[in-house]
């Protein structure tokens, strides 16, 4: 279970169920296409990606998904090419993150985990070479920007470009509303990660783009007005989604409320550490 994307606490039950359904589906797809071990790497963030790209009726025939549910409708959905592609994207992002950690030499588990998944990664590289290269090159670009002392906005943009490129090239997304939501959430994800790791990075001396933004080693002294402006300007680029189906309603709720609530929770947590 990884990732920051989630619905807000007060979200209606049918949206929460829809999100969970897609999350469980992604987990199943990972297991079916890339082995049971890869199910441990299922991510909330890719679930958002899946919901945004899947057609509204994609999982409609499946009433309930649990670890023991093996209905025909579910099996059919899991076996589709789309499911395989999304599962591959989930694992490619994992590969990107792990290779980033290996480059920085900051996480002890990165190397052995990459080794354990090497076979799966090679298969994905063979099956989806353009996606694989886009993601890994994107992570390298982010790493270079970080090393060059780039601002948080520059690195956010790198990550958003990566996701946008994959959505366009591999999944054929052209709609502006869908792309704007992808870009917004991708930017927020990088930002949330930076906020979450701030205290850890400051004490360990590792790179964090928010170090300059927050003085005296803690978020307690930060420029909250600047932070608010950053969120507001990112939100301004959100364009309306093409229809009002269940998936888009969930996605829109996540972008408008879920991400803010997550940021609030992280800020509060950092403050009281």
């Amino acid at each position: 279970m990884f990732g920051y994307v989630n619905l807000d606490k007060n979200a209606p039950a049918h949206l929460k169920n829809n999100f969970r359904k897609h999350y469980c589906f992604l987990c199943r797809a990972l297991g079916y296409h890339y082995g049971q071990f890869s199910r441990f790497l299922v991510s909330f963030d890719v679930t958002f990606f899946l919901m945004l790209l899947a057609e509204d009726g994609f999982l409609a025939p499946v009433k309930k998904i649990s670890c023991w549910n093996k209905t025909e409708e579910l099996q059919a959905a899991v076996k589709t090419d789309f499911a395989k592609k999304v599962a591959a994207f989930n694992l490619t992002l994992v590969a990107g993150v792990l290779s980033d950690h290996i480059r920085d030499n900051d996480k002890a588990y990165a190397k052995p985990l990459y080794g354990a998944l090497k076979g799966v990664f090679k298969r994905i590289e063979r099956e989806y070479p353009s996606m694989w290269n886009t993601v890994l090159d994107g992570y390298e670009e982010m790493s270079n920007t970080e090393n060059a002392g780039g601002s948080v906005c520059d690195i956010q943009d790198c990550f958003a470009r990566l996701v946008e490129k994959v959505a366009g090239e591999t999944f054929g997304v052209k709609d502006e509303g869908v792309l704007s939501h992808l870009i917004f959430v991708s930017k927020q994800l990088y930002f949330l990660d930076a906020v979450d790791d701030l205290d850890k990075d400051v004490s360990s001396g590792a790179y964090n783009p928010l170090k300059g933004f927050s003085s005296k080693k803690s978020l307690a002294n930060s420029d909250y007005l600047a932070l608010s402006d950053m969120v507001r300007s990112a939100k301004q680029h959100l364009k309306p989604l093409p229809s009002q189906g269940l998936n888009y309603a969930t996605v829109s709720r996540i972008a408008n409320l879920g991400m803010s609530e997550k940021l609030f929770t992280i800020l509060q947590g950092e403050l009281h550490q």
């Binding site: 003085s215 803690s218 002294n221 930060s222 909250y224 608010s228 803010s260 800020l267 403050l271």
Partner: peptide
């Protein structure tokens, strides 16, 4: 907000209000 005072010394009510508004992008003076 204006003087960038440390939030750790403020009451929970003020801290929560500032953080919530900042996370939503609504914080203004």
């Amino acid at each position: 907000v204006k003087e960038k005072k440390p939030l750790s010394g403020e009451s929970k009510l003020i801290t929560t209000a500032i953080l919530r508004a900042a996370a939503k992008g609504n914080l203004t003076i």
